[in-house]
Simulated scan of single mutants.
Amino acid sequence: MNGVLPPLDGDLPFYVSSGLMLLACLLKLPALVRARGRDWLLSSICALLFLGAGVLFITAQTSIVLVNRWTGVPNMAAPVVYMLLVAFSGASIVLVLNWRGETGSAKPRHSSRITIAAYGAAVVLIGVLFALGRAPVEQRTRFDLYYANTPFIREMILLYLIAHAVASLTVGHLCRRWSREVHGTLRTGLRVLATAYLMHFAGYDLMTAAAVFGRWTGHTWDVLIVIARTMIAPSAVLGAAGFVIPLVGQSTAVRYWQLAPLARTVRPVRGAPGPTPLPLPWWKPSVHLRLTRRQTYISDRILACRDRSDPRIRHEALRLALARNASGTEAAAIAEAALIVAAVEAHYADGATGSPPRRGGGDEHTVSSSDLVHIARALRSRIVKDVRTRTRNGQRP
């Protein structure tokens, strides 16, 4: 081995992606310490991010050379990469199992233990097979092809490809099926994940397996290894994004921001129950307190204009939304948003003219705070915008 390291430029995407995943893991570390191993979902997330960062870091050519040099074993980086990749595959399955599993249910933990045992055994077996085989000539990027016919090394390569492919197909299938049952950022994240693991399978597993199979049959399909290598970083980052998107979508800061359009919509309402909270400086209260204040602000103003609510508006908006192929959740949010918009406009108009409240059938429907984000998002609907326009023009259903 020479003493010159390969150029770092080609490794930069691997190191940047690895650093981002490691940073995300470190941000979760305090919560993991507080949980003391009792939160399987959080433990799965941290394990996935840590192992993913390790895979990306060790796959870079500079890292491969350094591992081989520091250990004094010509191809020591190869089994390290394979073991990390197989561990990452097992962690992916465990995370999805715990992510979807019911809180407190024993089934996800039982399935997780089986997965951990199976993939843990595969990791150990990879190390054993490498120790039994002979790989004296250093191969930084073509190890799979160069040793495709070498006893024990051949079986090691086949083992890691099968383990990784099974995990990619399993996670991709679970995420795709689950995405049909949910909405919002969770659906987006699951679809991104399904795409990422399809890239894992089609772009890496199949390409590498085909190149190795070519060597077994006397063909030279080395270009497939080059294609497979280029798929590692983007598919891993896409997978990390798929896990992070739903978590970000559920964060307090994001919910506070998502409620801003609804807060602006109910701003014209006057005479809300209870005193209006004093303005709070940005540097003092927590985001949780701000979210609670905003939810209270919105709910109080919806309550204040309830006398102007007309249930016919909700029923009509719901009918139109369903006719336009909106899902049940989306249609309900659109209907509620239309009702609120019409009530606010009527409240403001009656306040300006001094008219007494007009009941539209004594609607006592209330809105839970968990629905407010969906309603805020529904304000962008053409149905809601049309209701606002008609109400401002004095038209009633």
Rank of each mutant, 00 (worst) to 15 (best):
L132E: 10
R134M: 12
A135H: 02
P136I: 06
P136S: 12
V137E: 05
T141R: 09
R142K: 14
L145E: 11
L145F: 03
A148D: 05
T150Y: 01
R154S: 11
M156T: 10
L158C: 04
L161F: 04
H164G: 07
T170P: 03
T170K: 09
T170L: 12
V171M: 09
G172Q: 05
H173Y: 15
C175F: 06
R177H: 11
R177A: 14
E181I: 13
E181K: 13
E181P: 01
T185S: 15
L186E: 14
R187P: 05
A194E: 00
A194I: 06
M199P: 02
H200P: 01
F201N: 04
D205L: 02
T208V: 15
A209T: 03
A211M: 03
A211Y: 01
A211D: 00
G214E: 04
T217C: 12
G218K: 13
H219S: 13
T220E: 10
V223Y: 08
I225K: 00
V226M: 01
A228T: 03
R229Q: 10
I232K: 00
P234F: 12
S235Q: 08
V237W: 10
L238Q: 14
L238H: 06
G239I: 10
A240D: 01
A241Y: 13
P246R: 03
P246C: 08
L247S: 10
G249T: 04
Q250I: 07
Q250L: 15
S251E: 04
